[in-house]
Design a protein around this nucleic acid. Structure first.
Length: 113
DNA sequence: CCACTGACGAGTG
DNA sequence: GCACTCGCCAGTG
């Protein structure tokens, strides 16, 4: 076998984000062993079928903004709704404080999730 | 094979 | 904060 696909590793990494926290495309890429391929993370998430159990809404960009906020589809609204429902504060501009809600992960010294 | 496109990111001005 | 460039890589025509 060729081992798990990149997509599978990405989905597994996204599932690790605790409820009430958010992570970034770049950080997920790193956890998935795809350092520097943040773009692939977005590509993988866009391929998710509706109804997936993967918490894709917890993935935002490195600037703390919801990438779908600009999108013309309703996905941006869904993401915002899900985040707020988990207690995450999303401002009018579709921004989240990574300082307060960012998932802090350390491969070496992992104090908490 | 080439060109272009993306739910991205870091760097520069 | 905004605009632009370059690096990444899979999918599409």
């Amino acid at each position: 076998m060729t081992g798990p696909s990149s997509y599978q590793r990405i989905y597994a990494a996204v599932r690790r984000i605790p409820k009430g926290r958010v992570s970034t495309y770049g950080a997920i890429a790193r956890v998935a062993g795809l350092d520097g391929q943040a773009r692939q993370v977005g590509y993988a998430l866009s391929a998710l079928p509706s109804g997936s159990s993967v918490p894709w809404h917890r993935v935002i960009n490195a600037q703390g903004r919801l990438s779908l906020e600009r999108a013309a589809s309703g996905a941006g609204i869904t993401q915002r709704l899900r985040l707020v429902r988990e207690g995450i504060v999303v401002d009018a501009g579709g921004r989240v404080s990574l300082e307060k809600f960012g998932w802090r992960i350390r491969a070496a010294k992992r104090r908490r999730d």
